[in-house]
Amino acid sequence: MEVPILKQGLYLIASIQAALSDLDLVHLRDALAEKVGKFRARGVIVDVTVLDVMDSFASRTLRDLAHMTRLRGAETVIVGIQPEVAFAMVQLGLTLEGVDTALDLEEGLAFLDKKTKRHPSRG
């Protein structure tokens, strides 16, 4: 099941709609790394609100996704990790270290606005 990727201004928003297989997650990672270049995006939001399980593979793939897009010049923020999912992740030792997260889409957008704000040019 492919994850739709929407372009909104300088950001790409990937809104996961249903449970994803490993292959779906890998496709999402690669598609975002590619689309960051194609759309010259500065930020990426991955909305995982509907995911009811985040296991070691999903965590690792999302971490890789965030690091890959950063290397391509865009910041990624993961939004919508549910409280129960967060609890299970911590029990498994999956902390998504080095990856930015936000409560929901709204907070994610605000986070990216702050993070990608360009410094005023000197003049």
Binding site: D52, D55, S56, F57, Q82, V85, F87, A88, M89
Partner: peptide, 17 residues
């Protein structure tokens, strides 16, 4: 309870993996 269902599903996911 919902939390325990999530813990169980996550454990099964790891074992299957």
């Amino acid at each position: 309870v919902s939390t325990d269902s999530t813990l169980l599903a996550t454990a099964i996911s790891e074992l299957a993996r």
